Amino acid sequence: MAQADMLWRGLRGVALTLVVVFFLFPIFWIVLMSFETNETVLQVPPTLTPHLTLQNYVALLSGKLNTATGIINITFLHNLWNSVLLSTCSVLVALILGVPAAYAFARFRFRGGEDIAFTLLSFRFAPPLLVLLPLTLYFQDIGLSNTYVGLIWIYQLICLPLILWIVRGYFEDASPDIEYAYRVDGHSWWKAFTKIAIPLAGPGIAAAALLSFIFAWNNFVFALVLASADKQPVTVGALAFVTASGIQYGIIAAAIVLSILPTLALALYAQRWLVEGLSLGAVKG
């Protein structure tokens, strides 16, 4: 019996190791590619002892890319700033609009409420290509084409439904009796909302905001069509590395590594709130 348990533990350890290696190997390979030249990346067969270099990161930070056809100016840092600006502002606007709306849908029952909530959620289901053409024409008519305001507005199709439906669940799990007792004590509805409801749903709001930020950061299609190069985020800016002299695989890998660092740092910093928010209400007493 003891030998069978040891064998089972050994097999489980091997299986878990294989799963971890399977999922982490692409990340390791991307990081390794970011320290290699294009010639090393394209070498066949690939070498097990590549010559590592920092020239890809130097090119991204300096804005100068040396190719066979000459020097190309790249705007990676500006694209990175665009991603930070667009994602942060989009999440803030979605929180300002979505948290009160989620509270209203959770606490009040009114005609058409569920239909409105589902309609907002359906924006998340719709393929971006379905709305790109009318949005492009509409934005051109009202002067929002190729503007930060227009992109932040359109990013609400990503952030607002996510925050609305996630936060609504946390408001529904929180007992309204605490708010009623606070209001009976002479406080206004707004104070009950800000002092009681929001702190109770705080972990859920933090988790929804983090997930919305990641989805907004990773968006590609909207910014590709609705913005020019000076307004595009880093996901679209990486297209600049597909040049006439070839695809710069090493610098693309370096750009990927640098572009995931902000979201990775944010996720690690907010890990406690993320885990608490996603598990809140999972166990019913």
Rank of each mutant, 00 (worst) to 15 (best):
36 E>I: 03
50 P>M: 07
69 T>I: 15
43 Q>A: 13
65 L>W: 00
38 N>F: 07
72 I>V: 15
39 E>I: 07
46 P>M: 01
58 V>K: 10
51 H>C: 13
59 A>D: 02
69 T>G: 15
75 T>R: 04
63 G>I: 05
40 T>E: 09
39 E>F: 09
74 I>M: 05
33 M>Y: 05
39 E>M: 13
74 I>V: 11
60 L>H: 07
52 L>D: 06
62 S>W: 00
74 I>D: 03
70 G>P: 12
61 L>E: 11
68 A>P: 12
30 I>Q: 01
55 Q>R: 04
46 P>N: 05
68 A>M: 09
73 N>E: 14
62 S>L: 00
40 T>S: 12
69 T>K: 15
42 L>A: 15
57 Y>E: 10
32 L>W: 03
47 T>W: 05
74 I>C: 02
67 T>Y: 12
58 V>S: 06
62 S>Y: 02
34 S>L: 01
32 L>D: 05
61 L>D: 08
64 K>F: 10
70 G>L: 15
40 T>F: 04
38 N>S: 08
62 S>V: 08
58 V>E: 08
44 V>L: 15
57 Y>C: 03
45 P>Q: 09
76 F>I: 10
36 E>P: 06
70 G>E: 14
49 T>F: 15
33 M>H: 02
74 I>P: 04
31 V>N: 02
52 L>Q: 12
55 Q>C: 02
75 T>I: 05
74 I>N: 03
41 V>R: 09
37 T>M: 06
50 P>T: 08
30 I>W: 00
56 N>E: 02
34 S>A: 01
65 L>F: 01
44 V>T: 15
69 T>W: 12
